[in-house]
């Protein structure tokens, strides 16, 4: 499963850049985009396995090079500072994904179960393992502390109902990276009418996540 996903995403990536190889600088920019989107979106986004993997590769490569440099070298200290900065973004990205998995684990797993073969997975294999383990641990814990002392008809708990779903109706701040036309804005109250807005390139907006969710995953808008 994991390998297939990985290749799929790499293919997509190659199509995007039209056979160019992404430069390391572009790679870092991609990681930062993914980091901010993940930070601000109310739901778990698709995992960027290929970006994470490539960044890790860069970091280990640079680390290995630095091992060979003697101490006190000015260049080495610059490289080390840069590595620390990139590592911060990377771990903050992964951490915010884990936080969301912990918060919405039954829904995340449910989505994963309903996923059609061939569709890219939301979770990386490690995240999937984490979510499953978190689920079974929570269940075991609830059973141990309370459920087994309940009357028999109350001894089960439906996790999907017990854990709140991500609220897709929350507002988000966003910047349009590509112009988008005719985004339907739903009315807030019954006496208002729905209307459409155009997102010009570079403009910034505040609106409901639900309306722009597809644009976030295609990368046409950036959450800020």
């Amino acid at each position: 499963m994991s390998d297939a996903t990985f290749e799929d995403e790499c293919d997509v990536n190659q199509d995007d850049s039209q056979e160019d190889v992404m430069t390391p600088a572009e790679l870092i920019a991609k990681l930062e985009e993914a980091w901010l989107n993940e930070k601000f979106s109310p739901e778990l986004l698709e995992n960027k396995a290929e970006v994470v993997e490539c960044v890790m590769e860069q970091l280990t490569h640079m680390d290995a090079n630095l091992q060979r440099v003697k101490k006190g070298d000015m260049k080495a200290s610059i490289h080390r500072m840069e590595i620390d900065r990139i590592r911060f973004v990377l771990s903050s990205y992964l951490r915010s994904r884990l936080q969301k998995i912990e918060k919405f684990f039954p829904h995340v797993l449910e989505k994963e179960k309903c996923r059609q073969a061939g569709e890219p997975s939301l979770l990386s294999p490690e995240e999937f393992a984490f979510a499953k383990e978190y689920y079974s641990n929570t269940e075991a814990y609830l059973k141990a502390v309370a459920l087994k002392r309940m009357p028999p008809n109350l001894q089960t708990v439906d996790m999907l109902k017990a854990v709140p779903e991500p609220c897709l109706d929350s507002f988000v701040f966003l910047r349009a990276k590509e112009s988008q036309e005719n985004i339907l804005v739903e009315p807030e109250t019954d006496d208002q009418r729905e209307y459409v807005v155009d997102l010009e390139e570079g403009s910034q907006h505040l609106m409901r996540y639900r309306t722009v969710a597809p644009l976030v995953s295609t990368g046409a808008v950036q959450l800020i």
């Binding site: 739903e186 910034q204 505040l206």
Partner: peptide, 16 residues
């Protein structure tokens, strides 16, 4: 005014 959309050009990240 219970708006559903606002345009926020020129606002910076720190201000948001």
């Amino acid at each position: 005014q219970m708006e559903a959309h606002a345009r926020l050009d020129n606002l910076t990240l720190m201000e948001i």
